[in-house]
Amino acid sequence: MSDIGDIVDPLALENQVCFALAVASRSVIGLYRPVLEPMGLTHPQYLVMLALWQHAPLSVKDLSRLLQLEPATLSPLLKRLEAAGLIERRRSSDDERSLAVMLTPKGRDLRKQAEKVPATIVERLGMDLAELQTLHHALTRVIAAAGDAHLAVPR
């Protein structure tokens, strides 16, 4: 493994992991926009729907944890999805403080249309699926390492 000191200019923009991740994120999310638009979804709303298609019903707290979003960020997304008739939010019968998020029939039906999204994005990226799976694995490791590093930072 090379040392950071081996890099000619460690502050050069093209050497920054954060820059590469930020540009890659904006670029890939940009590919999703025209694919999701006919479904009436933004990319963050699509992520919420993916979580619900896989795990519904979920409490807002569990959904927030799963998506790694603050409840304050998640709440407006849920309000818009509810206004679109894709989800319902109900107080839990077990715990009045807990809000359960569930799919409506319209939200469940949208899944069929969404099944085409991953293949469309892979095609638009023009990258080999194995390469994308390797990238996904590496990014998952980066997310875990950043989370571990965040926890280790004294406050």
Rank of each mutant, 00 (worst) to 15 (best):
R155H: 10
S98F: 02
S25G: 11
S93Q: 13
V142N: 11
S59N: 08
G5M: 00
R141F: 01
T73D: 15
D62H: 13
D9I: 00
L50H: 01
L58S: 01
L77A: 03
S64H: 05
A100S: 13
Q16C: 00
R33D: 10
R97M: 08
Y32Q: 02
M39T: 07
V48M: 04
L151W: 05
D9Q: 01
T120R: 14
R111A: 02
P71C: 01
T134L: 13
S92W: 10
R108P: 02
A130K: 06
G107P: 11
Q68H: 04
V60E: 08
P71N: 00
R89D: 03
Q133T: 04
E14S: 11
T140S: 15
E131L: 13
V142D: 11
I7S: 08
P118T: 05
H136Q: 15
K79C: 00
V153R: 14
D94P: 03
G85M: 13
D3V: 00
A130H: 11
E70R: 02
L67Q: 00
E88D: 09
L86A: 05
Q113E: 14
K116W: 05
Q68G: 06
D94S: 08
S93E: 14
A149L: 15
V23F: 08
A20T: 07
L78F: 10
L110R: 14
R124F: 10
I7E: 04
R97I: 01
L78S: 09
H43C: 09
G40T: 07
V8I: 02
H43V: 15
E115Q: 11
A100D: 10
I121R: 00
E131Q: 07
V117I: 15
I29V: 13
H150N: 11
I121V: 15
L36E: 10
D148K: 13
Q45D: 00
V153A: 12
P38S: 09
A146E: 05
Q68S: 12
V23M: 14
D109Y: 09
R26W: 11
S93D: 12
D128W: 10
N15P: 02
G5R: 10
S25M: 10
L66S: 06
S75N: 12
L52F: 08
A138R: 10
R91E: 15
K116P: 07
E115R: 07
P34S: 10
S2Y: 09
S27V: 08
H150I: 11
I4D: 11
T104F: 05
A84V: 01
G5N: 10
E82N: 12
E123V: 08
I29H: 06
L47F: 04
A12M: 11
V17D: 03
P38W: 13
R91H: 06
S2V: 14
A114D: 01
V17S: 08
S98V: 15
R97C: 02
L21E: 12
E14D: 11
A114M: 13
W53Q: 06
D148W: 03
V122T: 09
P76I: 12
K106R: 15
P34N: 08
L74R: 05
L67S: 01
S2A: 14
L63P: 02
G107R: 07
E37G: 05
G5F: 08
V35P: 00
A152P: 07
L31F: 03
A72Q: 14
Q68L: 06
E70Y: 03
L86Q: 09
V153P: 08
Q16F: 06
A24E: 12
D109W: 06
E123D: 14
H137T: 15
C18L: 12
L41V: 06
A149Y: 12
L21T: 09
D148T: 06
L135F: 05
